[in-house]
Design a protein around this nucleic acid. Structure first.
Lengths: 243, 243
DNA sequence: TAGGTAATACTTACGGTGTAGGTATCACAT
DNA sequence: ATGTGATACCTACACCGTAAGTATTACCTA
């Protein structure tokens, strides 16, 4: 007897589950999120979810994929110039991060291998190739751009530790001891624009220009640091691409 | 009856607990980490840990602080030039990240408010002030530098999703479909140096130069993006500093 | 229309988690 | 010797992810 105790039509599907999960994490945060909570949200038995998604990890992957899809859906038309593509992507990515601050850590932390992520990378790198950028620079570009975006947006957007913070409070800065940290204290008022759009644009510009210049400059020589030596390249253990 | 069933002296302390936790996460990864596992590692009852550390969150904070302390302990003498300080910090930070790849996500994800983190920031910003850099640039610098470091190192160092990967395997890249992603496929061999030292130095240079140039360049104007408007600055909810 | 079959939903159960509350034991100053 | 505060310990609770097994539905074929 498959009772339908809730009013919901309950035609479960990966899409519907992912959408509900996104909504739930947005509202309640990551640490309280779980299969059971999600199931009760959907008016469904926890185990039913496993028919569509393999486990909690896959569930989180589905959440990541869903919000990533929002990003590429934002821009219907892509420019030709690779710097314009990079900037458009970056802005869409930031917008998404600000829409889903509790979800964003997931994207920054886990390797993204979904089709939508790879398509975005393909689009960027292809445009750079068309522009005649050296291959090594192109190969580095995604890591530079999204490495920066992930780190900057992590600090900026999901600043409450553990996501347990009450978003309504906005609690005033407790301010550190000025005798211990005089410079930081003096600078504190200037951090009013922390995470603001102007700041973001400034930094994005720095990164894009940095990539573009890397294409023309010879590879920077490293001042000697002693015995360390080669520090062999450490490829990702599973060959996945982190966006 | 306080039985000492294990051979360990078991003079529990925040330090000893943190050290054991660092070791445990290094070996087993973050997701399997827990109070009970740690307690059994220490040959101690789980609840005993709560006498020294308030809860799991505080425990993770202690872990972060412990590895951060390693970084500042690395360099006994700090240079005067702020760019040299920034580079030294960045390299020490990277070394730490590579020593503790399973722990690093903790640092990138959670706001750092420990004394050792604030001291580092104070050191950097003070040197920039001595050099006459504009205050706004100084206020932005930590976010740029550590934002980049966190994002880049996250992608580079802890690339296995969930930390469940067997570090011994080094599994060969599964390689994506070349017909779908021709450019990415063509570039794949160039990513052999992914996460290597040379690449890191190149990008670090880009960021440091970017900060330095931000000091001289007027604030970059933003090309219009329509109706969005102000996007009010969103200060961190608790005023903490993310390192 | 009847029968078979694959997909879907559900129930139960197990071994784990973080931690609140209460109790026994110790070290040490008086 | 005695009191006293810190330390360690045990029990218990509510919750978690998910393996295994069972009932119900939907659909295709004859």
């Amino acid at each position: 007897m498959a009772k339908r105790t809730q009013g919901k039509p309950a035609g479960l599907s990966r899409q519907r589950i992912a959408a509900a999960a996104v909504d739930l994490v947005d509202r309640q945060g990551l640490e309280s999120f779980g299969v059971r909570r999600l199931a009760s949200e959907l008016g469904v038995d926890p185990m039913s979810i496993y028919n569509h998604i393999k486990g909690k990890a896959a569930l989180l992957d589905a959440v990541s994929e869903a919000v990533l899809t929002e990003v590429s859906a934002t821009s219907a038309q892509w420019p030709d110039d690779w710097t314009a593509i990079a900037r458009t992507m970056a802005r869409g990515y930031r917008d998404m991060a600000m829409r889903h601050p509790r979800i964003f850590p997931l994207l920054a932390t886990r390797a993204q291998t979904s089709a939508v992520a790879l398509e975005a990378l393909e689009r960027l790198t292809a445009a750079m190739r068309r522009a005649g950028i050296p291959d090594q620079t192109i190969a580095d570009a995604p890591l530079v751009l999204f490495g920066f975006l992930n780190g900057y947006l992590l600090a900026t957007v999901s600043a409450d530790p553990g996501g347990t913070g009450d978003p309504a409070t906005g609690a005033a800065p407790p301010a550190f001891d000025p005798t211990l940290y005089p410079t930081l204290s003096a600078l504190a008022p200037l951090q009013a624009g922390f995470g603001g759009e102007a700041e973001f644009e400034r930094m994005l510009e720095t990164v894009v220009v940095g990539i573009a210049e890397g294409a023309t400059r010879p590879q920077a020589a490293r001042p000697g640091r002693g015995s360390r030596g080669a520090t062999a390249a450490r490829p990702t253990s599973d060959g996945t691409v982190i966006v």
